[in-house]
Design a protein around this nucleic acid. Structure first.
Lengths: 247, 247
DNA sequence: ACGTACTGGATTGTTGAACGATCCGACAAG
DNA sequence: CTTGTCGGATCGTTCAACAATCCAGTACGT
C-alpha cells in the first residue's frame, strides 16, 4: 500500500517517546465502556433524575448502539450503584434511601479517618507528600470556585478534596470504593434544592483540615475530619429524609 | 384456569406473614448471574488456575448459553476482580500481584480494625450481638474442621470469621467490599502449595479475638487483630512473592 | 543468520432480528 | 371492592453474521 503507515510503525513511535500516560486514552475502552461514560455523566449531572427508567430501546436508539452493547453498559453502572436493575423491568436511576445515606457516611468515617490516621504512623508513606499537596490544591480550587460563585465547581472541588484524603492511604481498592461512594453522594445532592447550602459552610473546615495536614498534625486533622463528617451527616440526613418524604 | 392461584394471592399471603426474608430466593437470578455463580465456584475452587483464559466459545458451548449471556457473566466476575478483561483478547482468571496482596492487607487492616473499634464506642450497635455470635460460630466451625483435618473447611471458616468481623460495622457497602477482597485472597491461597500451613496457626488467635469480643473488650480485640494481620501479611507476602517468581 | 513485514486463521467486538417470558395497566365479572 | 382475564410493552435470551483485532508462522530483504 502506498504511504503505508503500519500498526507496528505507530506502536514503535509511541513507545519511543514517553507517552505511556496517554495510552489509556488511545488504547481506548470498548463501546460499552464509552456508553457507560456518557450515561454516567448524564446521571451525575442530573439529566436523568433518580427513579427514571432507562429504556433499552430508546437509549440504544438515541446513542446508536445495539441493545446487547447497551446492556453491558448498564451492568457497568449497576455495579457502580448508579443504576438499579430490576428483573424483567429494566434499569432505573438509583434512588438513594436514607439508610443508604447513613451507610455512606459510616463508610466515609471509617475510610477517611483511617487514611488520615495512617499518615502519621503507618509504614506506607509512599507518595504521601503528593497526596497532601493534592488535598491542599482541592481546597484552593474550592475557595476560588466560591469566590466566583461557581457552585457546581465548588461541589466537585469538595468531592475531590475527600477523594484526595482517601488517597492518603495509597490503596487502589480504597480509592475505587470511595469513588463509588462519592458518586452516590452526588445523587443525593442532586435531589436537594440548594446544594450550595451544603457545601459552602464546610469550606473553612476543609481549610483547617488541610492546614493541619500540612503542619504534620495527623491526629488533629483526624479529629477535625471526624467532627466535620458527623456534622455533615446530621445536617444532610435530616434534610434528605424530609426531601424524600415530600416526593 | 382451574385451581388457579393468582399472583395477587401469593403476594398478599406472603406479605401477611413474615416471609420477606425468603423473597430474595424467589425473585431469582437471571441466567447470567447463575452462570457467574458457577464460574465463581470453579475459579475459587481452583478448577481454573490463575492466568487461564476463558474462551467464550468453549465455555459458552459447555454451559449451553449464548455468547452474549456469557459475556454478561464475565462482566460480573470482572467487577469482582476474579477475572481480568483484556480488550480483543478475552477474559483471564486474575493473577494477583504482590502489590495487590499488599493492598488487600492494607484494606483489611483499615476495615476490620475499624469494625472492631466501632463496636466499643459507635452509636451503630444494631445487631452487634448477632454479629459477635456469628464470629464465635465461625471460630467453632474452624476448630471442628481442624479436628477433622478438613482443611478446605478450615479455610472457608477462617474467611467467614473475618467476614463476620467486618459485619460488626453493620455496613452493607463494607460487607460487599470485604467479600470481594476475601475472594481475591482465596485466589492467592490457591497458588500456595500448602494452604494448611497458612491457616492452622491462626486458629488459636481467632479464638483469642473472639473471646475478647465476647468479654466486651473491644480495644483488646483490636490490638490482637492488628497483630494478627501484620503477622499474616508478613508471612504470606514473602511466601507469595517467592512462589510467583518461581512461576 | 537476523530482524522486518506480511499473511492467514482464530477469537473477540458489535450488530440486528427474533421469540418466549414477564410485568403492568385496564377492563369486565363476581 | 376484590378477583380474574386480557393485551401491549418491555425485558431476557438466543442465534447468525460481519468487522476488528490479535497471534503465530512464513517469506522476504539485508
Amino acid at each position: 500500500m502506498a504511504g503505508g503507515v503500519t500498526r507496528n510503525d505507530r506502536r514503535r513511535a509511541a513507545e519511543a517517546q514517553g507517552l505511556e500516560s496517554d495510552r489509556a486514552l488511545l488504547g481506548r475502552a470498548s463501546t460499552a465502556e464509552r456508553v457507560a461514560d456518557i450515561l454516567r455523566g448524564r446521571i451525575t449531572e442530573g439529566w436523568f433524575p433518580p427513579g427514571t427508567r432507562l429504556s433499552e430501546e430508546s437509549i440504544g436508539g438515541a446513542l446508536g448502539v445495539s441493545r446487547n452493547t447497551l446492556r453491558e453498559a448498564f451492568r457497568l453502572l449497576t455495579h457502580e450503584r448508579l443504576l438499579e436493575h430490576r428483573l424483567n423491568r429494566g434499569v432505573f436511576v438509583r434512588v438513594v434511601t436514607v439508610e443508604d445515606l447513613d451507610d455512606i457516611f459510616r463508610v466515609r468515617m471509617i475510610v477517611e479517618c483511617a487514611a488520615v490516621r495512617g499518615l502519621g504512623q503507618g509504614p506506607y508513606d509512599t507518595g504521601a507528600a503528593e497526596a497532601v499537596e493534592a488535598i491542599d490544591a482541592a481546597v484552593r480550587a474550592g475557595e476560588e470556585a466560591a469566590a466566583n460563585r461557581a457552585w457546581a465547581d465548588l461541589s466537585t472541588a469538595n468531592l475531590r478534596f475527600h477523594q484526595a484524603i482517601v488517597a492518603l492511604a495509597g490503596s487502589p481498592r480504597t480509592d475505587e470504593l470511595m469513588r463509588g461512594v462519592l458518586a452516590e453522594l452526588r445523587l443525593v445532592f442532586h435531589v436537594m434544592d440548594d446544594p450550595r447550602r451544603f457545601y459552602a459552610p464546610y469550606l473553612v473546615r476543609n481549610r483547617q483540615i488541610a492546614d493541619a495536614l500540612l503542619a504534620g498534625d495527623a491526629a488533629g486533622a483526624e479529629r477535625l475530619l471526624l467532627a466535620y463528617l458527623e456534622d455533615s451527616r446530621g445536617q444532610l440526613s435530616g434534610a434528605y429524609a424530609q426531601r424524600i418524604k415530600e416526593g
